[in-house]
């Protein structure tokens, strides 16, 4: 083999993300930096939707059986580079999409995703990966019908995370980028970078915004409001006529 740069830049297919979904179900994603409160809001939303009779499936970032263990081991051993970090997370999403998400969208269900491709676009660009390459890599992932970004200041996010535990994780803090020896300082710098990339997606109209500093009940009401149009067209479980066995 010849030596030379191996960075993923320079690939030449046109970006395919986002692309429309043509299934009867609906895909809704929440986004934000760690500690933005999106997971809490998504759980509350799922309970509300189920109480209204909708079939709901929750799916979380890095949760597939096939990839999760490998990622956990690699994180523990600090064996990931930005490129392999990105590719394994993409593989995780691909497994969940194929096995859990697409069948439910085909069946007309609501799929609520705690993070989707924009998480990779923001985090991996913050790790200096090429934006175009990231869009190409996630070309297999359909665009959500609604993607909501929970906007919070980084200081607030750090204080929320540290109120639940004493330490920031190595990759969570962006320590792999050697931004600062102090994990808290590193987290601030890294999350600010992530935030900038999220804000660019907001500007491009890819993400709707909710105020992550508002009271929980207000955020939840606003989130439900964003779903109004989707829910008007979405049948409830009781409306779905199942074929006879």
């Amino acid at each position: 083999m010849s030596g030379g740069a191996h960075a993923p830049q320079g690939a030449t297919v046109s970006p395919a993300y986002p692309r429309p979904i043509r299934y009867p179900g609906r895909l809704i994603a929440v986004e934000g930096i760690d500690g933005s409160g999106k997971s809490t809001q998504l759980r509350l939303l799922a309970q509300w939707l189920e109480a209204r009779g909708h079939a709901v499936h929750l799916t979380a970032w890095n949760s597939s059986g096939l990839v999760h263990t490998a990622l956990k081991r690699a994180k523990r051993n600090r064996a990931l580079t930005p490129t392999t970090f990105s590719l394994l997370h993409a593989a995780d999403l691909a497994v969940r999409l194929e096995c859990d998400i697409l069948p439910r969208l085909r069946a007309g269900q609501l799929v609520l995703a705690d993070r989707w491709a924009p998480t990779a676009f923001a985090r991996d660009q913050a790790r200096a990966l090429d934006a175009r390459w990231l869009r190409q890599t996630y070309a297999f992932a359909p665009r959500p019908h609604l993607a909501v970004y929970f906007r919070v200041p980084v200081d607030e996010a750090v204080s929320r995370i540290l109120s639940g535990r004493h330490q920031l994780k190595y990759y969570e803090a962006g320590s792999d980028l050697q931004l600062d020896p102090d994990p808290q300082v590193s987290f601030h710098v890294f999350q600010r970078r992530v935030q900038l990339h999220y804000e660019a997606m907001v500007q491009a109209g890819e993400l709707a915004v909710l105020d992550g500093l508002a009271p929980v009940a207000v955020q939840q009401a606003d989130l439900r409001g964003l779903l109004t149009e989707i829910l008007e067209r979405q049948p409830r479980t009781s409306d779905v006529v199942l074929p006879r066995p």
Binding site: L87, V95, C99
Partner: peptide, 16 residues
Amino acid sequence: SGVHALALLYAADLHD
């Protein structure tokens, strides 16, 4: 699990 997962795992494997 699908071909996209397979390809992405191979890509991670080779890039690593």
